[in-house]
Amino acid sequence: MIGDRSFGLVCLEMALLLLAGPLVTGTIQKIKARLQCRTGADLLQPYRDLAKLFRKDSVQADTASGFFRSIPVLVLAATVTAGALVPVIRVGPPALPLGDAILLLGLLALARFLTAIGALDAGGAFGGMGASREMTIAPLVEPVLMMVVFSTAVAAGTTELGALAAHRGTEWLLAWRAADFLGFAAMLMLLPAETGRIPVDNPDTHLELTMLHEGMLLEHSGPGLGCMLLASHTRQMVTLALVSALFFPAGPAGTGAASLLLGVGTSAAKILVLAIFLALVESSYAKLRLFRVPQYLGIGFVCALVALALRIL
């Protein structure tokens, strides 16, 4: 079975996800600032932050082990590899089989696991706190995400995201059924959890009471911190691309340069819509107490399970 997306295209998509990741973060920050009647930082501010970090010296905790230095690199690599598994510009299975949605979730889990290891390495209480909370939320998010993926995969007969999107592409928006709506609702509930945003996590704060992900980054500095931040931008981007591949898999069919540009444009539009959704949610809700989060995710689980039940029964 020769697929529709060549390896070069897959690499291009991966690079696009990596490079556009900070822009999406900048967009969300800008929208949030406007909603709070502030001017806000420039859209390109995350790029400037990264450039600054990569030029800096680094300081390492004196108790950290040899693993500490390699962790940002591995986290970034695992997250970007996950980016190779989502279709962005065009739909269809890749010519060279790489992996499916389960592998994508596995790679994101690998990045999270390594981040937690890095947080524990420095031996401060903040890192441990962040790692403990993150590893509490993550096992609860993963089954729900898996259910959402399965609820679309059952219909398509595959968990490979490109093929899944291609299958759904023929019967897209007008053919949405109850299962799709429920699955999408579950996915929207998971989106803040997976991208580390309110109401599950607060990306803007290092306050002890509210942080999850940021607490794990405290001991990283300089280029290492730059890698970690780039990884979290990419992770957010990959998650948004996953949502659009599962639920809005429209893309042009041609092969020319024009259709390639059109593909970039449509996926940018889809991701922009989801980014606006994230910014709106983040501006209009408060962060949940940590022990409320399992209940919040429980609603998502019920939605996803009902969606799957509707598909199977």
Partner: peptide, 24 residues
């Protein structure tokens, strides 16, 4: 990608590395 990121992490200006106690 790990190899690429490793090169990237070294930075375009080879920064120095020093150690300091963890912030408590």
């Amino acid at each position: 990608l790990t190899a690429i990121a490793w090169v990237l992490r070294r930075g375009w200006r080879r920064g120095s590395r020093r150690t300091a106690p963890t912030w408590t």
